[in-house]
Simulated scan of single mutants.
Amino acid sequence: MCGRTACTLAPDEVCKACSSRALDSKGNKQYRAADWRDHPGNHNYSPRQNVAPTSFTPVMLSERHVRGVKRQSEGEEVPSKYVIQPMMWGLIPPFYKGPSATGHGFKTNNCRVEDIEEKKSYKPSLLKGQRCVVLCDGFYEWQSTKGEKDKQPYFIYAPQPEGVEIWNRDTWDKPDVWSAEEGWKGPRLLKIAGLFSSWTSTEGEEVMSYTVVTMESGKKFGELHHRVPAILETDQDVEDWLDHSRLGYKEALANLKNETEITWHPVSKSVNNSRNQEGDLMSPASLDQKPKETASSKLMASWLSKAPPKQSGIKKEPTTPDSIKKESQAASVKKEVKPSPLAKWLKKEPKNEKE
């Protein structure tokens, strides 16, 4: 399954990270960044390291799928091979009628490849060729193979170029991270097979949404979780999934693999709460590391440290030299207990008997 992702690159960086090489208008081979297209209305993408369903994140589509086949005229700029635009995570079922994009009540952030052809929520997208590639830095997964209640979260991502740490911008955010001659030299994004749809509410609002295709895990990832997103490992994998006019959906589904080159490391349990966006959530963490303190947790700890100890309603006075002296005198008085009549009688000295 896939229930949380990280998308920290800005729109222009995402487009450059999805560059493709092609001939320019002069016949030279150069890299061309993907085109960005805004979502209709006010649904924008905001880079975040802890992304939950119903958020709008970058999705890649075929240029042909979006605009249709367009021939290049002499002197005209070559169109990009791919188009990227934000869509809502969680596919809106085509049969749903209502005013809100999130009011349908179905869990559609993931779709199982095993029954994708039977589900009424997904089959229309398959038949229409509405296949997309979900883009992210990586996704989070909680280890389910050890049966522990307090499950450890992990960050899963694609193998990175030498010297690049996808969770550390300082390792790659350089002036020459992208050029038309060399392409993108920054972090490698994770690309996942998905389906998308376009839906219009009863109020006339247009919303584009997507779902992530998942499958049974292979041997390697199965040590962490029994389900895994269908990861598109190579450029050819991406092209085959997006080119619906050349490859039918049955063949495209059959090409998906559950064994790909991915890597992962444990992260802070602060990622458990999707509201947490602060700190280095994607960075490697020790398995025995405690969740990073938040502003609210620090405030609570400070309050508790100042709270006086409970003493059954007895108010304790401050300790001073005079109070110590008083306590000592009180203790001595307490010790001088009057003897009982019996004790007095026993203490009487016996009279001498006459000889």
Rank of each mutant, 00 (worst) to 15 (best):
V83N: 07
W264H: 08
L232P: 00
Q30Y: 01
V14Q: 10
E353Y: 15
P341W: 07
N255W: 01
S340L: 15
S197L: 07
S274R: 08
K97M: 00
K16P: 08
V212N: 09
D280Y: 08
S55T: 10
A193R: 11
K315R: 10
H225W: 03
G248V: 06
K257T: 01
P341G: 07
K191A: 15
L247K: 11
P159T: 08
S340Q: 12
L126K: 00
M300S: 09
V66Q: 04
F56S: 08
P99I: 06
K70L: 14
R188P: 06
E148W: 02
L195C: 10
L304V: 12
S121F: 05
K81E: 03
M60L: 09
K334N: 05
W184T: 03
S340E: 14
Q143L: 05
E278D: 12
E205C: 02
L23Y: 07
S302H: 09
P40D: 07
W167E: 02
S201G: 10
A193D: 05
W172R: 02
P159R: 08
L342Y: 11
S323G: 13
V333Q: 14
M88A: 12
E141C: 03
Q311M: 11
A22R: 10
K292H: 11
P11A: 07
S286V: 06
G248F: 01
L195Q: 02
M60F: 14
S217Q: 02
G279Q: 01
S296W: 01
T171N: 06
Q49W: 00
T108I: 03
I116F: 03
K315M: 14
T214A: 06
S144H: 06
D115H: 03
H39C: 09
E261T: 02
L253C: 09
D288L: 09
A295H: 04
L242A: 04
H39M: 13
E216S: 03
W184N: 02
P350Q: 13
K316T: 10
H265K: 15
H43G: 00
V207K: 01
T202I: 04
A180L: 10
N42L: 11
A295D: 05
K29V: 12
T54W: 01
E182S: 01
N168M: 13
R112F: 00
V59K: 04
T202R: 00
S340K: 15
I166P: 04
I116P: 02
I156T: 01
M282Y: 02
V14G: 11
F106T: 00
V337Q: 15
R32L: 10
Y157F: 15
T214G: 14
P284H: 15
P99M: 08
K290V: 07
K316N: 01
Q311C: 12
T5E: 14
T294S: 07
G218A: 07
A34I: 05
T57V: 13
E239T: 11
P339C: 05
W199H: 14
W184F: 09
K257A: 09
D38L: 13
C132M: 09
K310E: 00
F56Y: 09
K107E: 13
E206V: 07
G68Q: 03
S19H: 05
P159M: 11
E63Q: 01
I262G: 13
N50P: 00
G248W: 04
R4Y: 10
G103W: 02
P94M: 03
P159A: 13
G3D: 05
E118M: 09
T57C: 07
Q152T: 12
G194M: 12
K351A: 12
R48T: 04
